[in-house]
Design a protein around this nucleic acid. Structure first.
Lengths: 189, 189
DNA sequence: AAGTAGTCTAGAATTATATTCTAGAACGAT
DNA sequence: ATCGTTCTAGAATATAATTCTAGACTACTT
């Protein structure tokens, strides 16, 4: 990834978050990053393309954090613990990246971003496969697949949204045990 | 509420959801609703003002559904059950309104919509007060206030987002018992 | 080393779109 | 019926995204 790209992404992330999507003009992005209009369009194609790059970069960073901790040999409970703790810690340490995900992913989905779809496929499917395995060997409760991720992540994500919006003071990492207990309570056989 | 306003809101909701926020032009809204540009601006002030009206109308409808079912005499468990069942049923019956809330509320928050802040105050504070009461009399577990709503709504909301995005087939109303069990498992003493 | 194809940068020109403006129509109160 | 107010219409304006053209840089080839 060229330097120009990462500089543009960093500037854009800051401006999109502080001023909002519609309120940041290409001109603002040019001034903040020092990259010309033409160059910006050469690299990203459009404002939406730049947004896509911003969100994908945040998702990729989160994914990296998850993979660092999650190895193949964990029990179901250990995996639940690891997923929740790692995500809570990552959000608490990278609030701006997390805000991008929660706040802008929707805009991309509705615009039909294929990069985002790819990410979902690569991210979600493998995780669901593992959960399916644990259902088969009885480590977690037999529930429709569609319910597993909401039960696992729901409370943490909901709390994270509130924290990221400034509605509560303590970061998600402060309540990991509660989120783990809730998730495991709902998922254990 | 004048007829013009509600026609505009209905058209705008449909267009915002199908084409996305940025992709629907004032011209499109004018053509779809038959209301002139000037009139649209007279009533809503700006495109964002129209979006605000769309979201607030959805929130108001959900609130009405909640208040119909929720009376003062319920036990904590009955209230949890009622909140989750009513919300799941409402989302399942009004997917477009729900999509507006999940997808556009963030855009309003970041734009500093005061109408939205008012709604949050009138909606959330009374509910939190009641939860506080149940903590005091021991009907629900003593937890930091900030955790209560995430534990209560997290799994249902997360599932609802997936259903509204078309990622799962069964509506939230199909899994009410699971969401109630998860919430009550996390909240009971 | 000079040539060359490809990539990148710059900023002006263009196009698209939100918003404002002006004039007049409809309405309600007195 | 008249006055003031609210509402509607659509053209004019302003704003901001995108495209375009020319040139600079880079890496590879001879």
């Amino acid at each position: 990834m060229s330097d120009t790209r990462s500089v543009a992404i960093a500037s854009a992330r800051a401006l999109f978050l502080t001023r909002g999507l519609e309120a940041t003009r290409i001109e603002d992005l040019r001034d903040a990053s020092g990259i010309s209009t033409g160059s910006l369009y050469h690299h990203f194609g459009s404002k939406l393309g730049l947004l896509e790059a911003v969100v994908i970069s945040a998702l990729a960073d989160h994914k990296r954090a998850l993979l660092e901790k999650l190895n193949e040999s964990l029990s179901a409970f250990e995996a639940v613990q690891s997923l929740i703790a790692t995500t809570a810690d990552w959000i608490s340490a990278n609030p701006d990246a997390a805000r991008c995900i929660f706040r802008f992913r929707g805009a991309l989905e509705s615009a039909g971003s294929s990069a985002l779809k790819d990410h979902n496929r690569n991210e979600l499917i493998p995780l669901l496969k593992r959960l399916e395995g644990w259902i088969k060997n009885g480590e977690i409760r037999a529930l429709p697949m569609a319910l597993l991720l909401p039960l696992l992540h729901g409370p943490l994500h909901e709390y994270a949204r509130a924290w990221l919006a400034g509605r509560v003071a303590a970061p998600p990492s402060a309540h990991v045990e509660v989120f783990v207990a809730a998730a495991w309570g709902a998922l254990r056989p």
